[in-house]
């Protein structure tokens, strides 16, 4: 994938396919430690322990349209190429937590890219999902939470055109300047 935010969109699809109603995504850069951490926590159906231990292998998938699963192996490979690793914790019936580390300054690290577009896409097709996105650079943070929006919108769905447009602009603004990650 050209951008880390495209991996995030792909991994969010896994959470949605697993029936998650809640998804928390965090992208955190620690400039002193020269480290970038991308994590996703969902409350979907989870995976059994033996499945988790094999899921980085592309031949492990529960899908039926294609015999190889690619999303997790690709994300794992992206982290490993940047002196990092992907850790997965999952419990059946509870949910799944994924966290990948990257060396922030690694020459092979893909840019975070258009995270606002990733968030708008997730919401456009999953308006009822409770999504929380946090982007951190050292001690600065931008937090976007669909629950706060829902209160303000009072019954208007998140996937209405004017709402999506606003979300895109709001996230773009919030993830620039002091919490910007390239």
């Amino acid at each position: 994938m050209r951008e880390l935010s495209m991996h995030i969109l792909d991994l969010a699809q896994n959470s949605i396919a697993a029936g998650a109603s809640r998804l928390e995504i965090e992208v955190a850069a620690d400039t002193n430690a020269d480290r970038l951490v991308i994590s996703l926590q969902d409350n979907g159906r989870g995976m059994a322990p033996d499945f988790v231990s094999r899921v980085k292998d592309p031949f492990v998938t529960t899908r039926t349209t294609r015999r190889v699963g690619l999303g997790i192996p690709m994300f794992d490979a992206a982290a490993r190429a940047c002196d990092g690793r992907l850790a997965i914790q999952s419990s059946p019936g509870k949910g799944t937590y994924l966290a990948a580390t990257f060396k922030l300054s690694h020459i092979d690290r893909a840019p975070l890219g258009d995270i606002a577009s990733t968030i708008v896409t997730i919401i456009a097709v999953n308006p009822d999902l409770h999504l929380r996105y946090t982007q951190r650079v050292d001690d600065k943070a931008f937090i976007f939470d669909t629950d706060e929006l829902k209160t303000q919108l009072d019954g208007v769905p998140l996937n209405e055109g004017p709402v999506l447009k606003w979300i895109g602009e709001y996230v773009k603004q919030g993830t620039s300047e002091e919490t910007e990650i390239n």
Partner: peptide
């Protein structure tokens, strides 16, 4: 819009953004 891994890798997100923008 097909949003599988291959779709996303091939640019499905940009397609989605263009569709939303054009409708708007």
């Amino acid at each position: 819009v097909a949003m599988g891994t291959c779709g996303i890798a091939a640019g499905a997100r940009e397609v989605m953004a263009a569709i939303l923008d054009e409708l708007d």
